[in-house]
Amino acid sequence: MDAQSLLRSAADVATAFGRVFAIVKANGGIWRVTCDIDGAPSLQIGSTGKLTTPRFGCSSGRHLVLAGYEIDDNNRQVTLRLYL
Results as ranks from 00 to 15, higher is better:
Met1Phe: 07
Ala3Lys: 11
Gln4Tyr: 09
Ser5Cys: 09
Leu6Asn: 15
Leu6Tyr: 15
Arg8Cys: 12
Arg8Ile: 11
Ser9His: 14
Ala10Thr: 10
Ala11Leu: 10
Ala11Trp: 08
Asp12Ser: 05
Ala14Gly: 05
Ala14Gln: 11
Arg19Ile: 12
Arg19Lys: 12
Arg19Pro: 02
Val20Pro: 01
Val20Ile: 09
Phe21Ile: 03
Ile23Ser: 15
Val24His: 13
Val24Pro: 03
Lys25Phe: 05
Asn27Lys: 13
Gly29Pro: 06
Trp31Met: 09
Arg32Glu: 15
Val33Gly: 02
Thr34Glu: 09
Ile37Ala: 13
Ile37Leu: 15
Asp38Met: 07
Ala40Tyr: 02
Ser42Asp: 08
Ser42Phe: 06
Leu43Cys: 07
Ile45Asn: 03
Thr48Val: 04
Lys50Arg: 14
Leu51Asp: 01
Thr52Pro: 04
Thr53Met: 09
Thr53Gln: 04
Arg55Asn: 08
Phe56Pro: 01
Gly57Arg: 02
Cys58His: 10
Ser59Ile: 11
Ser60Val: 09
His63Arg: 14
Leu64Phe: 04
Leu64Trp: 01
Ala67Ile: 02
Gly68His: 02
Gly68Gln: 03
Tyr69Asp: 03
Tyr69Ile: 03
Tyr69Arg: 01
Ile71Trp: 04
Arg76Ile: 05
Gln77Ala: 03
Gln77Ile: 04
Val78Ser: 01
Val78His: 00
Val78Pro: 01
Thr79Lys: 05
Leu80His: 00
Tyr83Ala: 06
Leu84Met: 12
